[in-house]
Structures are given as C-alpha cells and as structure tokens.
Simulated scan of single mutants.
Amino acid sequence: MFCPHAGGAASFFAPFTRHFPAGFDLSGVQYPGRQERLDEPLVPTVEGLAEHLVPILRGLATPAVPLVLFGHSMGASVAFEAALRLAAEEPRTPCLVVVSGRAAPSVPRAHRYPETDGEILDDMVKLGGTQAEFARDPELRDLFLPALRNDYGAVARYRPTGEEVLDAPLLCLTGERDPRVSAEAAAAWKNHTSAEFRLESFPGGHFYLADHREAVARAVADWAESPRGGPPSHTGT
C-alpha cells in the first residue's frame, strides 16, 4: 500500500503501478479531505492518519502473504506508525516497510517547518512537489491548500521518541540531493528495525521517485520477492 506525502493523494502513485510485476495487489491510501474524500474532515496528526489506516491493513494482512507498506515523506512516518500499531495487534502478521524521502525518527530536526500559507507553498514548490504555475493558480491553490496546510502541521507536530523499533524488514529509499534528508539521516533508519535493513539511493531531490518510477518499483518488488520477504503481496499506502 502507498502512503502519500504531505498534501498528496493516492493518485500520485498511479503511474508506478504499471512497473510492478504481475501478482502484486497494488493500492493507495486516500487520506480524508482530498479528491473523492474532499468532504471528510482532515486528520491533523500523523498518529491519527496511522490509526485510520490500521483497520484497513488488518483486513488485508494474512499470515501467508506479506503486507508491504510504502510511504513517501510524511507518508513514510504514517506507514511506520501504522506498522508499529499493526505489529502490536498482530505480531505474527508478515509486514515489510518501505520508507522514502524521510529522515529516521531518531534524527533531530535540522529545520523549521513553514507555517504561513505562502511559506508552505514556496516550500512545496522548492521541493518539487508542485509546479510553480499550479501553486499560483488561485482556484487550484484554494482547492489543495487546506490539505497541504493540515499535513504540514501534522508533520511539524509529530514527535516520535526516536526509540521506536519495528520487528519487520525495512527498506529505505532516498534521493541523493534531497535537501531534507541527508545520507546519514536516511541510514539511521537501520536503528528502527530489529530485522533486515537496506538503503538504496537514486539521483534527484526530495521527489526523486517521480523521475525513477520503474527503478523504484523494481527496488520495492525485488525487496518484497526476496527469500526473506516471501511472495509478492499488497503494496502501497
């Protein structure tokens, strides 16, 4: 399952699906307050988004088929928190976690999160998540800004202890020129799993994955299909 970034929607991952091998059951998480869920209340915390996700995962997970959670940027934190909660409920459920574009929970924050609408929009454009002309269009901006504002606030308020450890294989993907995630901050994810850890980097910045969809899909599929990971399964959110 795919978990989108701040301000993002499940549709962001649609182009990735054509690059996965047959046998994967692919789906994306649509957070409340966007696209077809536009009329639903926004969820103001990362933990709240994870808690909304757990009942869905509970219905997908089986002892025989591993569940793969893929989260990018804010979505990486959502996926990680959801995996922790699922493991607490169902410790024998096989689960693999893929975190992308996100520093490990144990890494101290090195920057201040934008607070005003102007700062948030400028930051999103700078990171490559939204084209400048899209952000400047008043009608489109008014449509996606509430979710973007909510999600930036959720990330700013997220305060993991830094000691969380998941008993599940963890794959970390990162952009080599990501201004928010250094190589060291990505590698620190190895401290948050007691199982196998792998780090793979790609050319590009924070949204490197948009330029390397096939390579990213292959990395995730190889990880899921490895002898340790077992057969292919649900990927996304």
Rank of each mutant, 00 (worst) to 15 (best):
M74N: 11
I56V: 15
P232M: 11
F202R: 12
E200G: 00
Q131P: 02
A183R: 14
H72M: 09
Y113S: 11
D167I: 02
R136M: 05
V54Y: 05
F197Q: 01
Y31G: 10
L148D: 11
T17C: 10
G118F: 04
L166T: 11
D142F: 00
A188R: 05
Y158L: 06
D178E: 01
W189D: 02
R34H: 13
H19S: 12
A185T: 05
G23R: 11
H52C: 06
A154S: 13
V107L: 00
E164A: 12
L140F: 12
V155Q: 04
A135S: 12
D39V: 13
F13M: 13
S106A: 14
R141G: 04
G128R: 07
V65Y: 01
E36C: 05
M124S: 09
E115V: 15
G129E: 02
C172S: 15
H5R: 02
V43I: 13
R149W: 05
A10D: 00
T235P: 04
E164G: 12
G28E: 01
F207V: 09
T45M: 05
R136I: 00
T174A: 08
G229A: 13
S27T: 10
L49V: 02
L42W: 03
D167P: 05
E225N: 13
A82G: 07
Y113K: 04
P160Q: 05
G153K: 06
A187S: 14
V65E: 14
A64D: 15
M74A: 09
G59L: 01
Y31L: 15
P4D: 11
R228F: 00
P63I: 01
G162V: 05
Y113C: 00
V220Y: 10
F207R: 06
V107H: 06
D178H: 03
L143F: 14
L170E: 04
H52I: 01
V181T: 10
G75P: 03
V78K: 08
M124Q: 13
P105N: 01
W223F: 15
V99L: 03
R37E: 00
A132C: 02
A217S: 15
S73F: 03
R18S: 14
F2N: 02
E47R: 12
K190C: 13
A79R: 08
S182T: 15
T17Q: 12
A10P: 03
A64C: 00
L67S: 09
E119C: 09
S77V: 03
G33E: 11
S73P: 01
